[in-house]
Amino acid sequence: MANVLAFAETRGGELRKVAFEAVTAARKLADASGGGEVHVLLAGEPGIGGKAEQLGRYGADVVFVAESADFAKFARESLAATLADRAKAGGYRAVVLGFSAQGRDLGPRVAARLDAPIASDVSDFTVNGDSITVKHPAYANKVITSLTITGSPVVITVRPSAFTAAEAPKSARVETVQATPASGPTVTVTEVKEGAKGRPDLGEAPIIISGGRGLKAKENFKLVEDLADAFGNAAVGATRAVTDDGWRPHSDQIGQTGRQVSPQLYVAVGISGAIQHLAGMRTSRTIVAINKDKEAPIFKVADYGIVGDAAEIVPALTAAVKEARKGH
C-alpha cells in the first residue's frame, strides 16, 4: 500500500481541468499500488482553500492547502519547493502533475529537488511491484514508448485528456500547510496576456479548425474563425507557415514544434499536410481536409476530403453547420 500526491493546478483562483485529471490518475496509481490514499497539494492565492471540497469529489482523501499571494503569479520556485517539501514529508510512492505549461515547469523541478526519476507526458501506466511502466509518446508522437521507472518516489506528468477526470466522492480532510519560500533568485511575472476569450484551449477543445497558407492572407482567417463559431465549442489552430508569417501567434501552432492535439474533429483548411504538421494532429478522431490540390498529403490522413477553393467551401460549410446546429 502506498499513498500518492497530486498537484492541483489553478489559474486565476480556479482549479484547472488538469487538476482533476491529476487527481484521477493519482487515484488510479494508488489503487494499483495496493489501495493507498490520494493526497493533493492545493497551492494558490489566498482563498484557494475554498476549492478543496471539489477535489474530494474526484477521490482526494486529504487536501493540503498552501496559500500565498505570490502563487497568484505562478511563483514557480516556491511552488516547486512547497510541493517537494510536502512530498518529502508524506513519503509518497509518486507525485502526479498535469503535463501543462505549469506542470512542464514544476515536474522537473520537483524531480530534481527530490532526486526522483520523472516520466513526462504519460498517457497510461501499470504498476508492477517496485517498478512503474508508463506509456509515453516519443519522437513527436511517431513512436510510442513504454518506460520502466524504478525507485520511489517517482514524478509523473500526465498528458492532458488522457485520464478523464472521474468522480469518486470522498469528504476530503483539509489541512493547512506553509508555503516554502524560494531560496534563491527567481523569475518574476510582469504581465499575463489573456488569449482570445470564449474559445477553449487547443489541448482541451473537442473540435479544432486549423488554417494554413492556403488561406492566402491574414484577414482570411476570419473564415476559419466563423466556422469555429458555427461549431460553438471549437478552437482555432494554425500551421507553422502561418505562425511564421505572423498571421497567428506561435501559441496557435499545431505540429511537431507546436501543440500536439487529439480532438474529436480536426478540420484542416488550406493545409498541405507536411509531416511536421501531421505529427501534431494525426491522432485526431476524425479529420476533414479542404485543399485545392487533390495530391496534397493531408488527403492521405483525411477521413473526409473536399477538393477546392477554401474561400468558396468554408463559408458554405459554416452556413451548413449553423443550419445543422439550429436550436443548440
Binding site: I149, T150, I287, A302, I306
Partner: peptide, 18 residues
C-alpha cells in the same frame, strides 16, 4: 532509473478519402 521497455509505432490511420 528510467529505461525503455518497449517501442511501438502508432497505429496507422485508415487511408484517406475524398
Amino acid at each position: 532509473r528510467v529505461t525503455v521497455a518497449k517501442a511501438e509505432l502508432p497505429p496507422e490511420r485508415p487511408a484517406g478519402r475524398i
